[in-house]
Design a protein around this nucleic acid. Sequence first.
DNA 1: TCTAATTTGTGCGTATGTATG
DNA 2: GCATACATACGCACAAATTAG
Lengths: 332, 332
Amino acid sequence: MGIINIDENISIPKYRQIIQSVENGLQEGHLKKGDKLPSVNSIKNRFSLSRDTVFTAFGELKQRGIVEAVSGKGYYIKSEDIRVVKKIFLLFDELNTFKEDLYNSFLNAFDSNVQVDIYFHHFNKSVFEKHINDNIGDYNYYVIMPANLKEATTIIRSLPKDKVFLLDQTNDSLLEFASVHQNFEDNVFKGLNTLKPYLAKYDRLVFVNPKSIQPKGINVGFRNFVKSSLLKSSEILGLEPAVPKKGEVYFILDDRSLIELIKKIQNENLIVGSEVGIIAYNDSLLKEIVEGGITTISTNFTLMGERMAQMILNEEMVQVENPNEVIIRNSL
Amino acid sequence: MGIINIDENISIPKYRQIIQSVENGLQEGHLKKGDKLPSVNSIKNRFSLSRDTVFTAFGELKQRGIVEAVSGKGYYIKSEDIRVVKKIFLLFDELNTFKEDLYNSFLNAFDSNVQVDIYFHHFNKSVFEKHINDNIGDYNYYVIMPANLKEATTIIRSLPKDKVFLLDQTNDSLLEFASVHQNFEDNVFKGLNTLKPYLAKYDRLVFVNPKSIQPKGINVGFRNFVKSSLLKSSEILGLEPAVPKKGEVYFILDDRSLIELIKKIQNENLIVGSEVGIIAYNDSLLKEIVEGGITTISTNFTLMGERMAQMILNEEMVQVENPNEVIIRNSL
DNA sequence: TCTAATTTGTGCGTATGTATG
DNA sequence: GCATACATACGCACAAATTAG
């Protein structure tokens, strides 16, 4: 396989394919400054093109300063410094507050010749599949939140493995792909263990888990902790029927439920941090000050975005657990 | 029998038959992503049609994202998913908390055969321009946040006027386009006026306006109110140097600054709602409960999304001011 | 030094296809 | 239905620089 490569049948114009071939050669180091490119005629003959087609391509490369033409001799690489816009495909599950830090820190890690396009699958298998299928071959890197979609693995396998990076969640069938993910089970288990001394004053741990779309590792971690700690516990799907009672400590996942819970606690004239406890998953702005601060078990989303960007820039194909933090505040 | 098939005698319009032919080809697997369609001219000649007839068909397929037009080459299959019948281009300024309600309520108003693609311009003119130029002709509707970009008007004018809907902000040079927008000047002025009785106990109104990217109507509204109310006031760009003092009431725009302010107030051992007042722009979850509730002047983003969706579904080309709300809570 | 082969550079014509009005 | 513009691709002719025999 030579430097130049052309496929007759695809939608990309031939002269563009020649340009891309040279760009690729430079990016992968096969071409260096001073190297001679194949002659116009040889390219023309090899791929049965018109001379003009090759000239259009070399002309653009010349105009961009990448290539230098020496009359009677040939074309030579003049500069290895090419400005190719890299495109990144970013597939999120849903838009919510946590994504803000993650997205912004990811974006800020790149300079202006990187283009990031964002898509959302809303935990819907066919939307997930469509976004991926429609964009195969259009991007340099694919950053994907598989969430807890069962069919994710087979769909993702249709992408080039060395261009795929998983975000936030991964699972046993996705181990072949690079990732920056949370270890939910471990985070919850260890997080709750860290908080164990603070839990002594409460006599029941209540887990509010409203959405089936939450990573199941959270449930597993919670149950493991309960088993090992011998604490009395219960799990509820929603808060509507619940009435907070003295001695209860709540482990809660989303902000909407948190607000509901706090309102209910206020209605019952109970005091957060002494009579009723709160532990929230995922740190966010509001937890810093609500009720004097809410204790959180949380991954650092800013770090997650930065680490992912770094992995892409260095093409590190590894699985990384994103660091987890327990922030102890007034609510326990 | 080729891919395209037309029967002169049946009642289905010819351009529809072309579309159906492609849909059939995809459904039966004869057509795959990347395949080239017969050229417009060849179809025209083979079935003695007008070029326009073929264009109408290919144009619809292009807007639905099924087909991609490559200038000088031909039409190629881009997506095998024929369920999508309408595509909406959604250009936001930045991803933040407020966009969550707006985006979700907008999305929920459509059924599953409508595809909404979201883009962000980050208040950057060239990013704004690129997203629009790259997607001309690819969508049925264009929903755009022009924010306060001066050059927005000329860029948007390259889109078909009857397919453009502006979101959140508009201005005098954009009056030709349909919109659901805030009247920032009015909202702030009237909002502060509504709150006037509560301001009597404070002796200075402090406006914290950290970002130059904020709509300037907010500043104008604030200044007009100050002029008419004869209140003592000051404007600061950031909170860092500020030390809250008894008798001050703060008008604050973003959540990050709000949290900072509350921490400073707590440091000074001042009581929110009596010694120091807070008014925030834009209501959000955290304002419901922080410090017993923060008074807000805010538009209803859920309504904004619903109204925009409704305008698109009915193709109402009108300018609508989104309703504004003043929510009085403990902080005044 | 001459010559033939190779290569870039330039100009013009033609065909096909998309894009716009 | 028609006209016009623009992009891609191919073919041919001729000029000028370089290199090798």
